[in-house]
Nucleic acid binder design. Structure first.
Length: 627
RNA sequence: GGGCCCGUAGCUCAGCAUGGAUAGAGCAUCGGCCUUCUAAGCCGGGGGUCGGGGGUUCGAGUCCCCCCGGGCCCGCCA
């Protein structure tokens, strides 16, 4: 790695004069060189004195140091700036990147270690909307990231096939006359969500007697009543197959689909419950509103205690969602003696096996001890997730490994809400999506809209292209645009979906990244790939900036692995692409007069293509060689 | 009432985790650049009390406290 090599050299240099931690940062401005040490300020604080003088003194005592890449040391008002010999540094960077190729930035920090990532987990009664897509894109990016860091990652998708939402649509099919076949060829998940679920929800609101029927159905499903359980499973699988089409379209991969009904069937709960009783974490309420319920004692929790204890087992003996999630969480941390059995349901588009839990399954898969369990669940579930974590701790499991990766929801801009029939309150700026009320924009709908927009752009630009090629490119650009826009914002910030805004393909967008990638591809294609690592005597600022950014990539990857601040990746990708755009405008490659120079610049373009490709792979923005 | 999150340019947001040199982008707006490697691009202009106030520090958009504004969560739902 390259920036890191520079840092290592600098560390060694400082060490030679007895400074162990020189507090190195990449210089904020190229005029200050490549690396800056802030150590003079620290020394001034600890031992007194003037940081300006201390820095000068340090620079002086380092002046005799003969580095390989570092060429000069200069103290400026307390900062110690290190410059490099670009002739050597540039060669080093290009050699490293081009020889490692797809592995540049890859790390072995995770080798031999395991991680579970659970994401998506959409109730199997509807098609995915854009809010779900945010979950999918974040979760899948985590999967790609940790795989790149060398971890053995297992991706789970939790299928809640036994909640009231399923009972809603079953009620529609069995009692309210909705046919199982939509009849108009529409996708089954879309039909269930857009038609059956929305209409049944409305009818239940109008006719409260239906609520009782729904409850009865929910119970029948949970008790594995022959007719209802089978119908439920059939619908679940049908919807799930369609949902996965959307997920795959977004480029997301899964290894295991965990059916909630199977978590119940395997009775993971009873074992967990016994343990909770044994450690005195739960108790049965004998009186009051919650008489007959088993509750988790939260009284010693610093914050959760203020909101009272949590019901785990209802007075009718059934478990709550939190209880089932505790059981499931315990399973993830190997806190249960039982394990699931699976069947191979099918293969994903990349040829990977997708397992689904199955009581009579013939596949055994033991994930083993994991270093982390990352659960991608929207922020509204923060409290229940804290309760689950707390319970896992009480069970004696390594609950610090259980991570709730929370993110804010996607809401509809008022404009978009009005388009689908919503009547806004005065002053209202957004509307929360609601499956029940039909207030949402489906992920596929948005991708299709983007795709149409892209198609018209491509047609205008490449009138000679055949339809298949236009189709292929448009799909990739549309998916790239959506993935980028969902992964780029801070996870703590709500995304207010504005489809008009979203359809713009300029500026800080996925297509911009794909475009700069495509431009690089064209140069390389025409270059005959004749490149060399021998730099010219003088590099342009644009070249230095591009190389500097390229050299920093491995730091970004590891940093995100530590911080889980995913947006750092798209931010980096955008800055890298911007650096390349400026390079592209100012620095002729194929038209450079000197053959050696041309070859060197081809290497620069190749290195850029590799790094941008690698980071786009991490965030799941498809690579496009021509657009 | 309790807990958590957000507030940076007209709009959307980076920068905050790990405090450092003149606060950066995109959109919008105004003005330039295509007979040269893809103009989905590049360059330039205008536009900022970093919500407000205190504090810590040589140094605060970044850390701490208080306040204001907005959002979310507190069910025998999931």
């Amino acid at each position: 790695m390259t920036y890191r090599k520079l840092v290592e050299e600098a560390l060694e240099m400082f060490k030679s004069i007895g400074i162990e931690d020189p507090k190195l940062i990449p210089s904020k401005n190229p005029v200050y060189g490549e690396l800056t040490s802030l150590v003079a300020f620290d020394i001034a604080r600890e031992m007194g004195g003037d940081p300006v003088k201390i820095a000068e003194e340090i620079a002086r005592s380092l002046s005799g140091y003969r580095g390989r890449i570092i060429s000069s040391i200069e103290a400026v008002s307390g900062y110690i700036n290190l410059r490099v010999d670009w002739f050597k540094y540039a060669e080093e960077i290009l050699k490293t990147v081009i020889s490692l190729g797809l592995d540049y930035g890859r790390s072995s920090v995770g080798s031999g270690r395991k991680i579970i990532i659970e994401h998506t987990s959409v109730n199997p009664n509807k098609a995915l909307h854009v809010g779900h897509a945010r979950n999918v894109c974040l979760g899948d990016t985590l999967y790609r990231l940790f795989s790149f860091l060398g971890y053995d990652v297992t991706v789970l998708n939790y299928i809640d096939d036994s909640g009231t939402q399923m009972a809603d649509i079953i009620l529609g099919f069995t009692e309210l006359g909705y046919p199982l076949d939509p009849g108009d060829g529409s996708r089954f998940d879309v039909y269930c969500g857009d038609v059956v679920y929305v209409e049944v929800s409305r009818r239940i609101e109008e006719d409260p007697s239906l609520d009782g029927k729904r409850r009865k159905i929910a119970k029948l499903i949970e008790e594995r009543d022959e007719k209802y359980y089978r119908l439920n499973r059939e619908i679940t699988e049908k919807v799930l197959r369609d949902q996965l089409k959307t997920c795959w379209r977004l480029g997301a991969r899964y290894h295991i689909l965990n059916m909630e009904s199977d978590i119940i069937s395997y009775d993971l709960w009873s074992e967990v419950f016994e343990k909770l009783v044994k450690v005195g974490a739960v108790y049965r309420a004998e009186s009051g509103l919650k008489a007959g319920c088993w509750l988790l004692n939260l009284s010693s929790h610093p914050i959760l205690s203020r909101e009272g204890d949590e019901v785990l087992v209802k007075s009718d003996g059934s478990t709550t969602y939190v209880a089932r999630d505790i059981a499931y969480g315990a399973w993830k941390l190997r806190g249960t003696s039982r394990d699931f059995k699976y069947k191979v349901w099918f293969r994903d588009p990349w040829g990977g096996e997708v397992l689904v839990t199955d009581l009579n399954g013939d596949v055994e898969k033991h994930i083993g001890e994991v270093e982390k369990v990352i659960n991608v669940i929207d922020i509204r579930q923060k409290r229940p997730q804290e309760i689950v974590k707390y319970a896992l701790d009480l069970l004696g499991l390594k609950s610090e490994r259980y991570i709730h990766f929370g993110y804010e929801v996607v809401a509809l801009s008022i404009m978009d809400a009005i388009k689908i029939g919503y009547e806004p309150e005065p002053g209202q700026e957004f509307v929360h999506m609601s499956g029940r009320r039909g207030l949402y924009v489906k992920a596929d709908t948005l991708i299709d809209m983007l795709k149409e927009r892209v198609k018209s752009e491509v047609r205008g630009k490449h009138p000679e292209w055949i339809e298949e090629k236009i189709e292929e490119v448009a799909e990739k650009v549309a998916v790239g645009a959506l993935r980028y826009s969902l992964v780029k914002p801070d996870t703590d910030k709500m995304i207010i979906l504005n489809t008009d805004e979203m359809l713009k393909l300029e500026g800080d967008t996925g297509p911009y990244l794909q475009y700069s990638y495509a431009r690089a591809c064209r140069i390389l294609e025409k270059s005959g790939l004749e490149y060399s690592f021998k730099p010219p005597v003088e590099l342009t600022e644009e070249e230095k900036q591009l190389l500097r950014r390229i050299a920093y990539f491995p730091e970004v990857v590891e940093e995100v692995g530590r911080s889980l601040i995913i947006k750092t990746l798209p931010n980096y990708a955008y800055m890298l692409a911007s650096d390349f755009s400026r390079f592209y405008e100012k620095v002729p490659v194929l038209y450079s007069e000197d053959v050696e120079l041309r070859r060197f610049r081809v290497a620069e373009v190749l290195a850029f293509k590799i790094v941008l490709g690698n980071v786009l792979n991490l965030i799941g923005v498809p690579l496009v060689e021509e657009m």
